[in-house]
């Protein structure tokens, strides 16, 4: 799956740019802080969206993430790109938010099949419905497993990338993804839509 995130080890020019921007932002220079905000907002939003599954509660988390980013930006050393560094913080903010949440009390509701004649519309509706069921099931899964699954199985990151972003070992991430999938399959039960979607995501991640 192609990803438009600026991640990985930085090229020399990118590293210099990132370090200079971080240095200026750390001094409280609002122009630099805004530049960083505009540059990184898509990265941060993507990471949070993948974990949460929608934009419903995302504004507060985006705000928290950027506040944490600006508080910590003085510690950025250029070991990774600024984009990946910001995502790491966003993921930590998401983890704290999910950990504090109480699991929903309502069981996953099955909805009627939507009838649509146009293929694209039908496909779009199918994806939305499948994603809704997936994230409803993810709401009941332990936060670390959820994040590992969201980043690896849904967003298509490699286990090594997820390990770096979550400050974990590759083995730990692999275990979390496996456990999350097993729990999701168990919860899918007779929900054929969710079960099929989990298979679908598994095949897509194997293709990468």
């Amino acid at each position: 799956m192609p990803t438009d995130m600026v991640v990985g080890f930085p090229a020399s020019a990118t590293r210099e740019h990132d370090l200079e921007l971080a240095r200026r932002a750390a001094t409280g220079d609002r122009v630099a802080q805004r530049e960083l905000f505009v540059e990184q907002r898509a990265n941060v939003h993507r990471a949070l969206f993948r974990i949460l599954g929608s934009n419903r509660e995302i504004e507060d988390l985006l705000q928290d993430a950027f506040i944490e980013i600006f508080k910590a930006v003085g510690s950025f050393r250029g070991d990774s790109t600024l984009g990946r560094w910001c995502q790491t913080i966003a993921i930590r903010v998401a983890y704290l938010a999910i950990s504090r949440r109480r699991p929903p009390s309502v069981e996953l509701a099955l909805v009627e099949e939507t009838i649509a004649s146009d293929t694209d519309v039908r496909r779009h509706v199918q994806i939305r419905e499948a994603a809704r069921r997936l994230y409803a099931a993810l709401d009941r899964i332990e936060a670390k497993q959820r994040i590992a699954f969201a980043l690896a199985a849904i967003d298509g990151k490699s286990l090594a990338e997820v390990a770096e972003l979550t400050s974990s070992s590759v083995f730990a991430v692999k275990t979390r993804v496996w456990r999350a999938r097993r729990e999701l399959m168990r919860r899918a039960g007779k929900d054929a839509v969710l079960a099929a979607y989990l298979d679908d995501l598994k095949e897509v991640s194997h293709d990468r």
């Binding site: 799956m1 939003h45 993507r46 969206f49 993948r50 599954g53 929608s54 934009n55 995302i58 504004e59 985006l62 496909r123 199918q126 994806i127 939305r128 499948a130 994603a131 997936l134 849904i154 967003d155 298509g156 979607y197 679908d200 995501l201 095949e203 897509v204």
Partner: peptide, 11 residues
């Protein structure tokens, strides 16, 4: 037939 990952909905 694959649905793939859900799209990122822009803010």
């Amino acid at each position: 037939q694959r649905l793939g990952s859900p799209p990122i909905e822009p803010l």
